[in-house]
């Protein structure tokens, strides 16, 4: 199968993720959309790796996964503590830092 199709899929997933980040208020959903974008990038990396015939992209994908896992840990912790203090998971409510 033409590897370019994987790139189209990655672009599609990325766009879906980005749209989700922009339009959803629920922090969990925003967070999942961010994950979706990361995974879209991973897909693109792997596809490029295949196209170019070297392993660089795959290695980067592994790195991304590790970073994503770490990010999930931190991010979820933030969301949970946010929910605890504000009883809401809406990102628009967390605007205390603005001037």
């Amino acid at each position: 199968m033409n590897p370019v199709n994987y790139l189209y899929l990655a672009a599609l997933l990325f766009t879906i993720g980005a749209t989700g980040v922009l339009i959803r208020r629920n922090a969990i959903v925003v967070f999942m959309c961010v994950e979706l974008m990361l995974n879209a990038c991973n897909l693109a990396f792997v596809a490029f790796s295949r196209m170019h015939g070297n392993l660089d992209g795959q290695i980067i994908a592994f790195f991304t996964m590790v970073v994503a896992a770490a990010e999930v840990v931190v991010g979820l912790a933030i969301i949970v503590s946010l929910f605890r203090t504000r009883h809401s998971a809406s990102v628009d409510d967390a605007s205390l830092m603005k001037l």
């Binding site: 980005a18 922009l22 339009i23 208020r25 925003v30 990102v91 967390a94 605007s95 603005k98 001037l99």
Partner: peptide, 13 residues
Amino acid sequence: QNGYARSYAVSMF
């Protein structure tokens, strides 16, 4: 800097 995370995201994108 209106404090809405999503508007920051828009400007980032």
